[in-house]
């Protein structure tokens, strides 16, 4: 009896869970974990009567692998900028033409003609952020907007600087610092990059994550750090400031795209258009605390984010950002070699 009942429940559960994937009016979003504001999903569901599921992934590679295999049942995915061309190249994305959608007018023009999706035929920004330097002003009162903070630390910061162990971010900053391009293969420039990093390393205290905590507590007086993390550290400790290296700093962006084999294309397009509306984009940012790339969303944002210099890039540094990309194999080889030596 009991066994039968349990079996019945299990079968019912299986059938129920199979339901939404095919029901009229559903939408299956595949996004980074802890990244989607439940309020946004609820609002969208209510307005359009669409049942939405959000499923998590933890890395671009996991998402790409599952989508490439097919049969996943997802309609929308949110890959990082560096992965968009890989998706497009493999024919995994639908040319949904968000540039022809009603709310496209709200997209910040500086994010329209991006290298990874010129004219925005495939994707819409979800959130974006920067990698810069965080400095504690109680120790260092100079200009924070320089990569010198970690590549040539000023006297006050020697032995107090942390570098996050993210090869692509750190190498991009160092390459830009010596005046090279991202993913350079120029051996002289690479030698310069290597020498600067090796000379700076003894002046660092660590190469670690967990910067939000340590900057807040004052365990670290400076660090290569992400803007969102620095923002949270500053809310805990007002002495922390965020610097945008004038030689150039990495920019990342996660983008909403519709999958080529999506089952609920119309709902996916509705959602794409929906999140370009400023008040909805603001909901995305309010939850995950990064900028969204939609003009006019600021006024709907939480008070503490509206004016945060970590979130709103000051005009003078706005043009210095460089989209991080996956380097071609040759430059990747050089980067890895330098990185291995550095982290030894």
């Amino acid at each position: 009896m009991d066994v039968k009942r349990i079996g019945g429940i299990a079968v019912a559960a299986m059938v129920a869970s199979a339901g939404p994937a095919f029901a009229e009016g559903s939408l299956n979003i595949y996004n980074w974990g802890n990244y989607t504001n439940p309020d946004l999903i609820e609002k969208f569901s209510k307005e359009y009567g669409v049942e939405v599921t959000v499923t998590d992934y933890d890395s671009n590679t996991t998402a790409l692998t599952k989508i490439e295999a097919g049969g996943h049942g997802f309609d929308i995915v949110v890959p990082s900028a560096s992965y968009i061309q890989i998706y497009v190249g493999k024919g995994l994305l639908m040319e949904a033409r968000p540039d022809q959608m009603e709310n496209f007018k709200y997209m910040d023009p500086k994010w329209v003609d991006v290298e990874f999706d010129p004219g925005r035929h495939y994707t819409v920004p979800w959130q974006w952020g920067t990698t810069g330097v965080a400095v504690n002003t109680s120790v260092y009162s100079g200009d924070p907007n320089t990569a010198d903070i970690f590549l040539n630390p000023p006297e006050e910061l020697v032995g107090k600087v942390n570098v996050v162990p993210e090869m692509n971010d750190v190498m991009t900053m160092a390459e830009l610092y010596v005046g090279a391009e991202q993913c350079t293969t120029d051996k002289e420039k690479l030698k310069e990059v290597r020498d600067i990093l090796m000379a700076a390393k003894p002046k660092w205290i660590a190469m670690d994550y967990g910067t939000t905590e340590k900057l807040s507590k004052g365990d670290l007086m400076a660090s290569v750090n992400w803007n969102g993390s620095t923002f949270r550290a500053r809310l805990n400790n007002p002495d922390v400031v965020y610097g945008y290296p004038v030689t150039g700093y990495p920019v990342w962006m996660d983008n909403v795209a519709i999958l080529a084999d999506a089952q609920n294309v119309e709902n996916a397009k509705l959602f794409m258009n929906y999140i370009m509306a400023p008040e909805n984009a603001a909901l995305i940012s309010a939850f995950a605390r990064y900028s969204n790339g939609i003009m006019g969303s600021d006024e709907f944002m939480p008070e503490d984010m509206k004016t945060a210099p970590e979130i709103v890039v000051p005009a003078e540094f706005a043009g210095k950002g460089v989209f991080t990309k996956e380097c071609p194999p040759e430059s990747q080889k050089f980067r890895t070699a330098i990185w291995t030596e550095l982290t030894k």
Binding site: S17, N34, Y35, T55
Partner: peptide, 23 residues
């Protein structure tokens, strides 16, 4: 589980793994 799950099929461990990207 991470590789086999389809839409809306997160389990407790995959959900926890997903939390790690942010604070």
């Amino acid at each position: 589980t991470e590789l086999v799950k389809a839409a809306g099929q997160d389990t407790l461990p995959t959900y926890m793994l997903g939390q790690l990207r942010r604070a």
